[in-house]
Every structure is written in structure tokens, then in C-alpha cells.
Design a protein around this nucleic acid. Structure first.
Lengths: 243, 243
DNA sequence: CAAATATAATAGTATTACTATCATACCTTA
DNA sequence: TAAGGTATGATAGTAATACTATTATATTTG
């Protein structure tokens, strides 16, 4: 493991992509009825649900429409996911798991806590710009789906039950990783968890504002949210950072 | 107007409540078909929709159920609101308008920019704890509805059209007021709008985390989100604040 | 080749989110 | 007080949604 991580230290973009392709993101198996990675139909469900939710939005998306699109049957899709809510939980978990891999790989070998935190913030709040071509998954569109729909996956009456069943575990682990990095930079800071959750959730929100409410943000194509958050975090932790 | 505002400077809680009761919050009349404030049925629709959305969540809430609850007819409710999405927009606008009044009244007469900003942050990120008894509107429950449902009002495919029609104008005005206060404290800060939107949106989110994902926040009953945000903002603006 | 498994086809149900029409009650005002 | 307008209620109906159930047909595997 150590050998691999030392090796990864110098991975460039292309190598990283290939490595990510060979990694299977581990998702709580209570989220699905049958693992969509286990069959061709399952992969087509994932592939086209991403395209369709991005196109028409989560509300208008239905299993019936998805069935028509992939030339399959509504009832067959129900054998993979109980309902579209669970499918959204699956897509979100996949996305956060994918981000987590990038985070761990990119920051694991950085010894300096400030460099590590800055790098983490940039990875977590950057726009997904390359389709790493995880075969059937379009990460660029999935990133946009998470921006527009992720909140709906937890703003429900069932959230406590679903949390207990572990449906949000990857997201929580991600927040915890940032919290630890924040504490490594400033162990006396009082709000490391709140700051960590604000980075992830606020990152999504700033992208939404750029697209729909530009008067409520200073970010744009030339001034990405990542820079706002790096500035915010390091000023808050009272550490100058000129990285 | 100036006389009134000077007078308000020393308003205590009770007086404030009474004053708020006499103010009609101005909501874009495209949001409703018929003004619910204009009739008894309209007020019952608002009153019980707040109770029911709080109880069962926005997804399970329907006009049919509301009709049964208030002893009225589904079709009569449609004469006030096109659909439940518009009703949510109405409730949210009312809430933000109500908060805006509190903000303006409480901060207008504060001359010192730091005091003003700190006071604003506290007002905007505190939990609603007293029911000011705006007759039929329960502000405590409405605050909880906004925490749990507000994002759903703009995370839609219709957001740009609805924004054009002015459905989010009160919220945007609120964010703009904070932005101006931030700039008054530090005119060279690069991200006043992003910081302002983060306070409002992040404030709601931290309350959600307290209730459902306590591991992702440091806030709780003894350490309210307001303190996290005051600390965050003043450190970011590089001004010590000991108020 | 038989058995198990996956998928497809079809049908059916309760609910949702409306729209339309008509009846009735009440309130005003000439 | 009669006539007309407005608000609400009652009823019916529609298309779509979100499923469940059953049976049929492929496909894979042992």
C-alpha cells in the first residue's frame, strides 16, 4: 500500500485517469436491489439516467422514460433500484466516492499541512472538466447533477432512517477528511467540522449561483469558487497561504 | 420615515412584534392567483399549509389533503395558488421578507459598520424562537420549513424563468444588504457577494446538520451557527470583533 | 440438455396534479 | 327587494406517476 501511494505521488493526469478506471467505487449495497455494475443493463441504466437527469431534471425524470430511452422495460429497471430516489443516492455516492479517491491520491503524499489543505479544497471545489471516461459514467454531467440535485437526496422526511442505513457515509467521510486537515493546520480552531461541511456544500452552491444567480456571487469563469474557499479557510485559520 | 427609524432604534422585543404584526409583507403578485391575505379561506390555506408541510414534508403534502384539513375543497385552493411549488415560493418569500424587516429595523440605526454586520449575521442565522403571532403564520415552523425545503424552490429546471419573473427578489435583496455591510467593513475584500450568500445559505444548512448530521457540524444548542458565522466573517475580513 | 436466472411484455392499482363544469350561498347596490 | 356579481363547494374527469404482479421468453451456467 505504501509503495503504491509513493508511486502515486508523481502521477500525472492521464495516469490518474487510467488508475481511476480500474478502481471500483464501493457503494453501500442497501442502496440498490441489484448491483448495476454487474450487468450490461445495469450500466446502461446508470449511463442514461445521468444523461436524462441532467437534461430534464430529477423531477421530470421517470423510470418509464428511462426504459424507453435504453430500449428496455420499466419493470426491469425496478429490479436494480427501488425508486428514483435510491438511484439518485447511488449516483451521488458514486460521485463522492470518486472525488474521495482523487482527494486521497492527490493529497496523501503532501507532508506540509497547509499545502495539503489547500490542495484538498481545490480538488473538492473545482468544476469537473475532464471526462475520465469511467466507461459508462460521464463525470462532467454527474458533477452538474450533484450541483442541481444533491440537496434533494437528504432534504426528506426519511433522512434519519436512511442515514442510519449508511446511505450518506461516503459524504460524511469526505467531510471528516477535510475536518482533520483543518485541524492539522490549526488545532485550536473551534469549528473544523462546520467549516469542512461549508466547503463541500458551499462549493456546490457557488456553482449553482454562477449559473443562475450571478448577482449573489463574485465567482465566475476567471475567479473559480476554489479561490474563494482557499482564501476563506486560510484567513479563518489565521494562516497566510501563498500557494 | 426617519422619525420612525429613530424611534425603532430602541424598540424592545414586544414592541417589535407588535410592529411586525401591522406590516404587510409585500410579495410579488405573480406568485399567487388570488392574494391569500385577502380572505379568510386564503389565510387558512397559509396557516394550515405551514403546519402540514412541517409535519409531512413538502413531497407528501398535497392540495387535496390540505382541503380535507381545512374543511374546504381542493378546487378552491387552486383559486389561490397554481400549484404547491408556487405556494412554497410564497411561504419562502414571506419568510425572507419578514427576516428583512427584522434586519433593517435592528441594524438601521447602528452607526459602526462592524457592530452592524455582526448584528446582521446574528439576526439572519439565529433560530426563530418566538412566534410573533402574525395572526395565522407560525414563524417557528416556517423557519423549519425554510431549512428543510427552501432549496427545492430554486433547484428546478424553471429557475431562470422564475427568477426573471421576480420570484426570488426578496432573497436576493437580503443577500445584497449583507454584501453591502461586508463591503462597509472591508472594501477591499474580493468576495463580498459570495460571502453574503454563504451566510444565508450556510446558516440554513448548519441548522439542518444539527438535526440530522451532527458529526458534520460543531454547532449545537450551546454553540449556535450564528457564532460560527460571526467568527468566520470577521476573521475573513481581518477585523477582530469582540462584540 | 435442464435448470436457473435475467429480461421483456402486459396489465392493473392507487395516487397525484390538475381542469372543467355546475350549483349554491352571500353580498352588494340600484 | 330583485338582479347581478363574486366566492366557494361539489362532482367528475383526465393524463401521468409510481409502483406491483404475473406470465412469457431469452440467455447463461452447471
Amino acid at each position: 500500500m505504501i509503495v503504491i501511494l509513493l508511486y502515486l505521488r508523481s502521477l500525472n493526469g492521464k495516469l490518474m485517469e487510467r488508475l481511476l478506471q480500474s478502481v471500483k467505487i464501493n457503494i453501500n449495497d442497501k442502496i440498490y436491489v441489484k448491483d448495476p455494475e454487474s450487468s450490461d443493463l445495469g450500466k446502461r441504466i446508470i449511463e442514461h439516467s445521468i444523461l436524462m437527469i441532467h437534461d430534464m431534471g430529477f423531477e421530470a425524470f421517470t423510470f418509464k422514460k428511462l426504459g424507453v430511452q435504453i430500449g428496455s422495460n420499466e419493470s426491469s429497471i425496478y429490479r436494480y433500484f427501488e425508486n428514483k430516489h435510491k438511484l439518485l443516492l447511488y449516483l451521488a455516492s458514486w460521485y463522492w466516492g470518486w472525488l474521495e479517491y482523487q482527494l486521497v491520491f492527490a493529497t496523501n503524499s503532501i507532508p506540509n499541512p497547509e499545502d495539503k489543505l489547500a490542495s484538498a479544497i481545490r480538488i473538492l471545489t473545482r468544476a469537473t472538466e475532464v471526462d475520465a471516461s469511467f466507461s459508462h459514467i460521464n463525470e462532467i454531467l454527474l458533477n452538474k447533477i450533484v450541483i442541481n440535485e444533491y440537496s434533494k437526496s437528504y432534504l426528506t422526511k426519511e433522512v434519519d432512517q436512511e442515514n442510519k442505513e449508511g446511505y450518506f457515509i461516503i459524504y460524511k467521510r469526505l467531510v471528516n477528511r477535510i475536518r482533520e486537515m483543518i485541524q492539522a493546520v490549526n488545532s485550536s480552531y473551534k469549528y473544523p467540522a462546520s467549516l469542512a461541511s461549508s466547503i463541500l456544500e458551499g462549493g456546490l452552491h457557488q456553482y449553482f449561483l454562477i449559473d443562475h444567480f450571478s448577482s449573489m456571487t463574485d465567482c465566475n469563469e476567471n475567479l473559480p469558487p476554489a479561490e474563494f474557499f482557499v482564501d476563506l479557510v486560510f484567513k479563518t485559520l489565521k494562516k497566510e497561504y501563498n500557494g
